[in-house]
Simulated assay, not measured.
Amino acid sequence: MGYKTILVHVDEAPHSAARVLMAAELALQHGAHVIGVALTGVSRFLYQNEMVDDEDPNLAQHLDVLRERASRALADFAPQLRALGVHGFEERVLDDEPGTGLALVARHADLVIVGQALPDARSSSPAAFPAEVLTESGCPVLVVPNTARPRGSISVTPAGVASAGSPTPGRHVLVAWNASKEAARAVREALPLLAGAEKVTVAIIDADLRPAAFGDTPGAEVLAWLARHGIAADVQVRQAARQGLLKRPGDVGEVLMGLAGETGCDLVVLGAYGHSRFRETLLGGVTRTVLESMTVPVLMAH
């Protein structure tokens, strides 16, 4: 089963067009309906808690400016999808904060596409915004790096689907596997992409630290699982550098990103581990490292 409802965050950031393009590419391949959402940034809780005066003319003027900006961000959304051959789509302007607003809509979607937060954003780190959507939506999140191409073209067949030469991510997928429930959830959510990949590599880092989880042959079970879905994969077992007198492992995220560059993958699948309610530490260190240094799209599940 593929992705049938794809939600994409649209804003005025320079790389927003790359997100829309990616949503279009996936929609053509999976026969999906695309929902483009732009948000004003005004929290819905202000209205629910009656903290604002609807009759305040200053407020009305401010809201008009914010809604106009959100509408401007969506100006090219419909024309772009229509030109690319996507027939099922809609656009929405919502009065809400980006993270919470997207998460609410994403509860009725199969996949949500967001951009990597800019380093100078008000969030504490580039990982904060995708993390909020991920942890609050219950939906897998595909994060597009800031370095993604802002424009592109798709060759569409007469049947209305993307040709084999389309630049959809997922030709070579790197799956970060640590035998956790989060990693298992990420693999399940990524199955539609894995099934269409030309190559799948399962990355296992520091298997020696959890022998009970990985067994005698690290990766054997996950390879068998994927094979039953008709997905052939290979395994790369690596070890992070041991540091200090206690020989603690180094940054697993850096090892994973290094392997992604070495193998030339165009998509990383990652189970995101959350261990705190505070946004600054919402995700585990590996996930933060990946989201802050990513150069290829990352599909996350929580």
Score class of each variant (00 low, 15 high):
L26T: 12
L26A: 15
L26I: 01
A27K: 04
Q29I: 04
H30S: 10
H30G: 02
H30V: 02
H33A: 10
H33T: 05
V34I: 09
I35A: 04
I35Y: 02
A38F: 04
A38T: 02
A38P: 07
A38N: 01
T40K: 05
G41H: 02
V42I: 13
V42H: 14
S43Q: 00
R44C: 00
Q48D: 11
E50Y: 04
E50G: 08
D53I: 11
D53Q: 13
D53N: 15
D54W: 04
D54A: 15
D54E: 15
E55S: 15
D56T: 04
A60Y: 05
Q61V: 13
Q61I: 10
H62I: 08
L63F: 03
L63S: 06
V65T: 14
R69D: 13
R69Y: 08
R69S: 13
A70W: 02
A70R: 00
S71T: 14
S71R: 12
R72Y: 07
R72T: 08
A73C: 12
D76L: 08
D76S: 08
F77Q: 04
F77E: 01
A78Y: 05
A78N: 02
P79N: 03
P79T: 09
P79M: 02
Q80Y: 02
L81W: 06
G85H: 00
V86T: 07
H87F: 07
E90G: 04
R92G: 01
R92V: 10
D95E: 11
D96H: 09
D96N: 15
E97S: 12
G99S: 10
G99K: 13
T100P: 10
V105G: 00
A106P: 05
R107Y: 00
R107H: 05
H108A: 15
H108N: 13
A109F: 09
Q116N: 05
Q116M: 02
Q116W: 10
A117W: 06
L118H: 14
D120S: 08
D120L: 13
R122C: 00
P126V: 11
F129Y: 13
F129E: 07
P130T: 09
A131T: 07
A131P: 02
A131M: 00
A131K: 07
V133N: 09
L134R: 05
T135D: 00
T135E: 08
T135V: 15
S137F: 04
G138L: 07
P140C: 08
P140D: 05
V141E: 04
L142A: 09
V144I: 15
P145C: 06
N146G: 15
T147H: 03
A148G: 10
A148V: 13
R149D: 14
G152W: 01
S153G: 08
S155H: 11
S155N: 11
S155P: 03
